[in-house]
Design a protein around this nucleic acid. Structure first.
Lengths: 225, 225, 225, 225
DNA sequence: TATGAATGAGTGTTCATTCAT
DNA sequence: AATGAATGAACACTCATTCAT
């Protein structure tokens, strides 16, 4: 009986191992430059074996995003739903983010992939499932963020004229480029600590920009949980 | 004697023609999706001829960035050097930006390319010149921006603790993603007017975030030249 | 001025050379077993070059069929339209066939490919052009055949109850298998003379089977032009 | 002791089950389109298990042909050996054929496979057994047919100049293509009744073609047992 | 006996770049 | 100066077959 379980576990582990190899490669060389061949070699598997675990390159990559997004949501959701104020939720959001990704390069990779996948041609004849699933969880994170921003507006912390959707995208874009820049200079790869520090500063700046005129800055301090 | 000059002029014109074709294609389909073949066809030249004018795809693309950056600097530099305050320079910077790119899709293309080129493999055996030249003028713009931000800090408009380099990159990143997003949705392509509007809002938010505590927001208003 | 012509001619010759290489390979090993790689090697070209002349494997293959079918129609059509009786047309049809393919392995290959292409998955998202063009000329030959059979029925040579469409397919199938069998035994490859002889006998038998009861066999003799 | 027998029986049953699954798939999608994977899935077995029962894809497929051929011979042989005239034997042959395959899709599949297998590379280093066994029983059917045709010739029903081997192949080819055509159009799959009807007509035509000049057509009527 | 997992050897196709003319 | 023609190296993906358990 234990056999099936072990099998199951091993399979999951392999999946994870493959994903990890892919992540490392992505972090080292960038998404655009790695192929199934490379991942296979790194994972010490044959290309064909990869296809036993992931039905295609796109799936493999998006799985990485999903995985992390899932982990993030799992960590963040409970707090969020417990009746926090907008700004507290935002802090909690950031805290979850830091706790989860602060000491790994995960987040670098996620954004890398996300941008990469977006640039792909739309397989119009691909199964619809793909399109729906494409970034279900990643988008959920963005949705959370937008909801929080709306709440901040409602509570008078943020400028009521602020366009929440735009604001969300701004944060995303800032993080995205910080990460991209970090990855793009392979000679002196910034460690995640540095990245997180930059992100924190950036987010802090954005929040000040979002804030309603007159709101005290200490209220917006995301480093003060 | 006039012959050599005419030759020279014709050569320059061809270069421009090619660059323009490339730009149009990039705007229509995105950098990742167009190849030398496409550019050649559009320019009504052979692929081989392209290589007479540009030593490679990378050079061709980066040339587009350079060209625009050059134009921008040319327009902006005079004002900047004439003793403006930091915040005025910033407004002037933005004004130049809008005047130059506000009614064309130039800027979309530039950022598109910039992101694209960054993702390229580093040809370690390529002549060093390439690396240095890679984005000489684009970087000059960023340098200007950074200097202005420094000035704003010095003049007490911006938070003295602000990291100018980071701030510059933030602005760049925000613009970059606004543009990327705009391009990525080819079905309902935003026109440059919309893009500029979003950028203005975003920049405004950033500036508020950059500002020293207590600085009056009206001072930061970039729409009020 | 002659240059463009020469170029044009050379290009056509290359196309032909490639097609011929493909044909030889198909004759020697069968359609299913040869790939673009093989054709390229035989033609002493790179795989990529093949794609300069043919946009894909399917196109390359169907081109072979079309080419022959075109040649056949060109040879046969004039006679056919000049008011022959059905049975004379049939003889003429056969004569054209023999004259054109009697001393080459062309026809073996055509049927080989035809069957092969039929077995391909239908690219439902392929450009519609493909579907229409797929076997325009080959089908024209079959149409001719069917029309002739109809005429023979009308003229009282063939059994009025004969299903012309079925009859056409029967002839096709007989030819097809004679050819397939010929190819499938690579150890003692029958030469085209033998093939044609078998085909003649087979066609003769079919015609007798098609004939209206009582029609004199000498009338049906296709060897007697 | 009974255990070994049961084992044996179960093994045979499994073999049968696998063959049946393969048949269904072949009928639905065509030989070229199905792989070991598909058969395994349908049989609710693992791919590896298939190899316990059949040493390879080729063997599995040819086994299907053999099985049916065996069944046919079993049904037909007794009649044939009981001193029928050639033409009666031919009718009996056809009757057996219809009785056995007339209400199933068996025969479609057999010819499908047969054509498919013929197109395979000759494994020159494969054990010779393979080559010999390849279509032992199917060939036995063809031999029967040839013998009958010879008898018809001897009895004056068929043209004495008729090449029996060729005639046999003709019949085969006609059946083969009727079946192929039937399978190739998966949208409106002809049922076996239609197929048998077409085959009957075709065979009737062939027989007329085979007949000695002057033989009365009613004698050749295969629908009149 | 049965199988999950693995793979080698392919498939067709693309594209930036080069070179003879 | 211009180009048609050619290509190498890469790409994602497939499948019959094997083997440890």
């Amino acid at each position: 009986m234990g056999i099936t379980e072990r099998r199951e576990r091993e399979k999951t582990e392999r999946r994870r191992a493959i994903l990890n190899c892919a992540k490392e490669l992505i972090f080292e060389h960038g998404v655009e430059r790695i192929g199934m061949e490379d991942i296979a070699r790194k994972a010490e598997l044959s290309k064909a074996t990869l296809y036993l675990y992931f039905s295609g390159k796109e799936i493999l990559f998006s799985e990485i995003c999903e995985e992390s997004a899932r982990a993030f949501l799992k960590q963040f959701k409970p707090y969020w739903e417990s009746g926090l104020t907008g700004i507290s939720a935002l802090k909690r959001f950031w805290r979850s983010y830091v706790e989860l990704f602060g000491d790994s390069n995960e987040i670098v990779i996620i954004f890398n992939i996300r941008n990469y996948l977006k640039s792909w041609p739309n397989n119009d004849n691909a199964p619809d499932v793909n399109k729906q699933h494409k970034s279900h969880f990643v988008d959920a994170i963005l949705d959370s963020m937008k909801t929080i921003i709306d709440q901040c507006k409602a509570e008078g912390t943020f400028d009521p004229d602020l366009d929440s959707a735009l604001a969300t995208r701004l944060i995303l874009s800032v993080f995205s480029l910080i990460l991209s820049d970090a990855v793009r200079t392979p000679f002196e790869p910034k460690n995640s600590e540095d990245i997180i520090r930059e992100m924190t500063i950036a987010l802090q700046i954005m929040l000040r920009g979002f804030a309603k005129e007159g709101v005290n800055r200490s209220l917006l301090d995301i480093t003060n949980f």
